[in-house]
Simulated assay, not measured.
Amino acid sequence: MILYIWRHPKPITAGGLCIGQTDVEVDKRKLKRLANKIQRFVRLQQLPKVIWVSPLQRSLKVGEILAQRGFECRVAPKLAEIHFGDWDGQSWKQIEKQQIDEWCNNFAHFAPDHGESLQQLFNRAESWLDKIAAEQKDSPVLAIGHAGWINSAKMIATGQEVPNLAINWPHSVGYLSCSHIDI
């Protein structure tokens, strides 16, 4: 299975904040820009008009635009970004340095209070990828996701383990960019 997954547009008010599952707004023009990009890609590649999205509005709203244009929009909670728990939506400056250090030094297994660890995100992403691969077989899958989830899926696809140290985490994919992942 080939997964084509686009990262959502840049949120309006995310600068300096720890954003995981906090539902932040995106400029409507940027939502339409990504929808146009996906629609053009699907037309040129002659792909099925089915798009998977996370329930977070920075992904979901692009799917809703595409649904108005004849796409089938499927919402998958397992596509959501990592849940940072009590950190989610907070300024990085407000989070205790000791907690951030603990996270960076136990990157795979540390979870902020009421949140999930990177290992849990990997497990969630792998579960969704396995389910979709079994259903889709050789059909390409289109999705709109989030940087942490996309990096996790790329690492899973290449057989990499969850990194134990934050320094070993890859750079985030760019907003509106498409990642091609062979599962």
Rank of each mutant, 00 (worst) to 15 (best):
L66Y: 07
A67H: 07
A67S: 11
F71K: 04
F71C: 03
F71H: 01
E72L: 09
C73A: 09
R74E: 04
R74H: 06
V75K: 02
V75A: 02
P77S: 12
P77R: 04
P77V: 08
L79C: 06
A80P: 04
A80H: 15
I82K: 06
I82E: 05
I82D: 02
I82P: 01
H83G: 14
F84H: 09
F84V: 07
D86E: 15
W87E: 04
W87G: 00
W87D: 06
W87V: 03
D88P: 02
D88S: 02
D88E: 00
D88K: 01
Q90W: 01
Q90K: 11
S91I: 05
K97I: 15
K97V: 14
K97F: 13
Q98S: 14
Q98Y: 03
Q98T: 09
I100F: 01
D101N: 11
E102I: 07
W103C: 07
W103G: 02
N105K: 13
N106T: 06
A108P: 00
H109D: 15
H109F: 12
F110G: 03
F110H: 11
F110V: 08
A111M: 09
A111I: 10
D113Q: 13
D113I: 11
H114F: 09
G115L: 01
E116F: 08
E116T: 08
E116C: 10
S117F: 06
S117A: 09
S117L: 08
L118M: 14
Q119K: 12
Q119Y: 12
F122N: 08
N123C: 10
N123L: 13
R124D: 10
A125H: 00
A125Q: 02
E126N: 13
S127V: 08
S127A: 15
S127E: 15
W128I: 06
L129N: 04
D130Y: 08
D130S: 12
A133L: 05
A133P: 01
A133E: 11
A134P: 00
A134N: 10
E135F: 07
E135W: 09
Q136R: 14
K137N: 12
D138S: 11
D138V: 05
D138R: 13
S139R: 09
S139Y: 07
S139N: 14
P140C: 03
P140R: 07
L142R: 03
G145V: 00
H146E: 02
A147G: 15
A147K: 00
G148S: 11
G148K: 00
I150G: 05
I150V: 12
N151R: 10
N151F: 05
A153R: 04
A153I: 14
M155V: 01
M155T: 00
T158M: 11
Q160E: 14
E161F: 04
E161T: 12
V162F: 04
P163H: 06
P163G: 03
N164P: 05
L165H: 15
A166C: 10
